[in-house]
Design a protein around this nucleic acid. Sequence first.
DNA 1: AGAATCGTTAATGTATACACTAAGCGAATT
DNA 2: AATTCGCTTAGTGTATACATTAACGATTCT
Lengths: 222, 222
Amino acid sequence: MRAGEKTYRILRDEILEGKLRPGTVLAEVEQSNRLQVSRTPIRQALSRLVADGLVTAQSPRMLVVTDMDADRVRALYELRHALESHAAALAARRGSSAPFELLQRNLLAAPELLADSEGGLRRYFEIVDALDAAIDEAAQNSYLSSALASVRLHSARIRRLSQHDADRLRSAAEEHLLVVEAILERDPELAAHATHIHLRRSLTSALARLESHTAESSSQRT
Amino acid sequence: MRAGEKTYRILRDEILEGKLRPGTVLAEVEQSNRLQVSRTPIRQALSRLVADGLVTAQSPRMLVVTDMDADRVRALYELRHALESHAAALAARRGSSAPFELLQRNLLAAPELLADSEGGLRRYFEIVDALDAAIDEAAQNSYLSSALASVRLHSARIRRLSQHDADRLRSAAEEHLLVVEAILERDPELAAHATHIHLRRSLTSALARLESHTAESSSQRT
DNA sequence: AGAATCGTTAATGTATACACTAAGCGAATT
DNA sequence: AATTCGCTTAGTGTATACATTAACGATTCT
């Protein structure tokens, strides 16, 4: 793999995993030494991360990992609502049934998966990712897909900040199931509304966890 | 200004103005010679253009100006609909009245502006841009704003491909006025629907012009 | 004759030297 | 003592040499 691509993925994953915390300064020479590549691929990676919105120019010559707080989470979910509801509605109009029938079966089996050990959790997330991909595919709109890709990047970061419990994931699976069923019934409005409900509940859960984390951090500070 | 920034703007504007036509190959050395800067700022500019979606990797080592056809125009307008309707609704909820009252007055005066000479047309577009900016500001959502910025880049390109006549612009001003009035009346749904109507009519107009241009091109080929 | 492989070439990918700019610290002057 | 000016330094911005790779063409083998 190209050094620039590799560097980009490493830095991106470190930001998404929270290993590089919001506010962390990303200097070219420093990262160049750390990751053992020259400044050129580092610059390329940082440019892409700035374009992604994961890194922000704090001053003309200082890049930092973008901050994330409750207000930003709310704003992101607002955008997700606009995009994903629309995408689900388009999928209901245009999608072929086969992939969604498969997803329906998989989602119905989700509770047992989540009762399983580690591997089940991974498999669960694969199914959710497959749903995103199926909706993308069905919506047949490359502009929408790339906007969604951007949004999902930031969503992934929030997901890490607020790790889910099995209860929430079971509920989420049911919510996803409603979306899939709406798409299978070719009901765009219903698909959009089911997506809306899922996002609202997901936001509530994310905010609750974010606040409890923040409370922890500030109590650690005392 | 930095060479990389300057190069980016030059290439971007040339693409938006149609000076660099869809499919044009953008090779580093070639552009480096043409624009009289080294490959480094060229690479930076090309990366940004790829991120913008204005340039596409056709093969692992060949960048071309992204193609634009009727289907893509429709897809883009679909995304615009999702984003701008939502933004207008948010503006109706959250915006302060003052900037929209000013916009209302300006849009009411638009017909006279368009009857004017050159300067009037420029002033008209300034007002439309100000409306975009006011909605952005009022929606108070940075993620939404950056998604809209991306969409507007592509819209600007389509606008160039299909130059408007005064009649269409006068109608557009009336449509914008409906959006502004809905925002002033704090009616989110109305604002969203007014935006929907504007986009639909704008799309129809753009497609009609695009087709007539395509027809011209193919008749030129005979 | 056709297809496949290897070599050449021309492009991008990477490293690095050099340029420039901005920020911080110190000294000098008011 | 405080403020301002200038110098130093550390960082990014640019150019370019070198490495690498992919594409094209020619040659050879089937």
